[in-house]
Simulated assay, not measured.
Amino acid sequence: MSGVAQQRLQQERKAWRKDHPFGFVAKPRTLPDGSVDMLHWDCRIPGKTNTIWEGGVYPLELRFTNDYPSSPPTAKFPKGFFHPNIYESGTVCLSILNPEKGWRPSVTVKQILMGISDLLNDPNNDDPAQQLGYDVFRKDKAKYARLVKQQARKYSDEKYSTI
């Protein structure tokens, strides 16, 4: 890993440990040999209270490159995650993660996770990534709410709330 990426991710980890939103988890993956993979973080985003996402704790992977922070990480939910701005592969479509749109090297892990949390409850109709999620969101709000609540139950299991 490049020195710049390593240094920045260590700073991010330290800052996260000192100050992170309640219920959120973000930490580098520990490899089988006990070493830490600073380029691959396991995260959890809790569903916001009083929303259809409430009750779920959504697993997300952040993958950084050696070019970080010059280039953004990739953020992925599990494959098949239901949301208008999440590709079928699980990859998040969000402007702050796009180098041609909103990415800036000053964007932090905390800002990324908060942005994704906001996106869950407030999809961007102007930038759909998933046809089914987009169509249901636009045409049948009751069905959309039902599918999101079903997904929240799926990810409410204890295994998703801790890493």
Rank of each mutant, 00 (worst) to 15 (best):
M1I: 13
G3F: 09
G3K: 11
V4M: 13
A5S: 15
Q7G: 13
R8L: 05
L9S: 05
L9A: 06
R13P: 05
K14A: 14
A15V: 08
W16Y: 06
P21T: 06
F22K: 14
F22G: 09
F22P: 10
F24I: 00
K27A: 15
T30R: 13
G34D: 00
D37R: 02
M38D: 10
M38L: 15
M38H: 11
H40R: 11
H40D: 12
C43D: 03
R44S: 13
R44T: 12
P46A: 08
K48I: 07
N50A: 11
T51W: 00
W53Q: 02
E54Y: 09
V57Y: 14
V57Q: 06
L60C: 12
E61Y: 13
L62A: 07
L62Y: 04
R63T: 14
F64C: 06
T65Q: 05
N66R: 12
Y68C: 06
P69H: 02
P69Q: 01
S70Q: 10
S71I: 08
P72Y: 04
P73Q: 06
A75I: 02
K76L: 12
F77Y: 05
P78K: 02
H83V: 00
P84L: 07
P84G: 08
I86S: 05
S89G: 08
G90Q: 01
T91D: 10
C93W: 06
L94I: 07
I96G: 03
L97I: 00
N98M: 03
G102D: 01
G102Y: 04
G102I: 04
W103T: 03
R104P: 07
P105G: 15
P105L: 07
S106V: 15
T108V: 04
I112R: 00
L113D: 02
M114C: 12
M114R: 09
M114T: 14
G115E: 01
L119F: 10
L119S: 09
D122Q: 11
D122A: 14
N124V: 06
D127K: 00
D127E: 09
D127T: 09
D127L: 03
P128W: 00
Q130C: 13
Q131D: 10
L132N: 10
G133Y: 06
G133T: 07
G133N: 07
V136G: 03
F137R: 02
F137K: 01
R138I: 09
R138L: 15
K141H: 09
A142S: 14
A142C: 05
K143C: 11
K143E: 13
A145K: 11
R146F: 13
L147A: 05
V148C: 01
K149Y: 04
Q150Y: 12
K154C: 07
Y155Q: 02
S156M: 09
E158T: 14
E158K: 15
E158D: 14
K159Y: 02
Y160A: 04
S161L: 10
T162I: 13
T162C: 12
T162Y: 13
